[in-house]
Amino acid sequence: MMKKPVLKIDKLSKSFGAIKANDNLNLNLFKNEIHALIGPNGSGKSTLVKQISGFLKQDSGKIYLEEIDISNYSAEHRSRMGIARSFQISSVINSFKVIDNLRLSLMGRDGGYLNPFNNIYTNKDYSDEAFDLLKIVDLTNKANDLVSTLSHGDKRKLEISLALSMKPKLLLFDEPMAGLDKTSSQLMIDLFKRLKVKVPILLIEHDMESVFALADRISVLDYGSLIASGNEKEIKSNAKVQEVYLGDEN
């Protein structure tokens, strides 16, 4: 029996003027896996993430989450359905405390965000859950710090915990290691390994070392098209990939 994908992307295309950012893409993500998406700058990775998360509307093609066609759903609807993302450039509420960022997302997940009465700051369930989430990314000691005072690495961690707070069905991480030092990167790698048994991850990453350390499957994008897909060995030995991607690196 065929395994059913958590996320299925079917012939997705997106152009900006004459530039084809995504050209007839097919991709899927199964349970218990980290699927890494690599490709040179401008190959259409971020465009794909934006379309999956609903921040950008595709020109044609379909996106399925657990066999539900979500192609026309708004970004906020998709977030509530369990597509959680991180942004290429850390995107957190800098003027809030760390824990208030989590309160915001927990509340967003549960709905009722138009309620003008219940005090969100004194809601004990949310506080407890927020602390549990901060524990996962090792940020509990900074719970009451203003986000604007956090280091780059800590903001990344917070962003991951925000994604986890949504009780996601899948995680979309857009270059989560960018700008992190070795220790923080290693921490992320360990964390992602632990996470994937619960939630599959679509990982976009420039750092090849991390990709090879993490990914069960790697897909390579070039000029908006998928040129190869497979495990580490297959990718490394693929002539096309070496030409357009790995060759450039050296």
Binding site: F55, G108, N115, P116
Partner: peptide, 20 residues
Amino acid sequence: SPLGISLKACKENEDRVRSV
């Protein structure tokens, strides 16, 4: 309230707000 915290968040970063 939930409305208030959402409003304050919208002021700074609507993309973040949508992604939660």
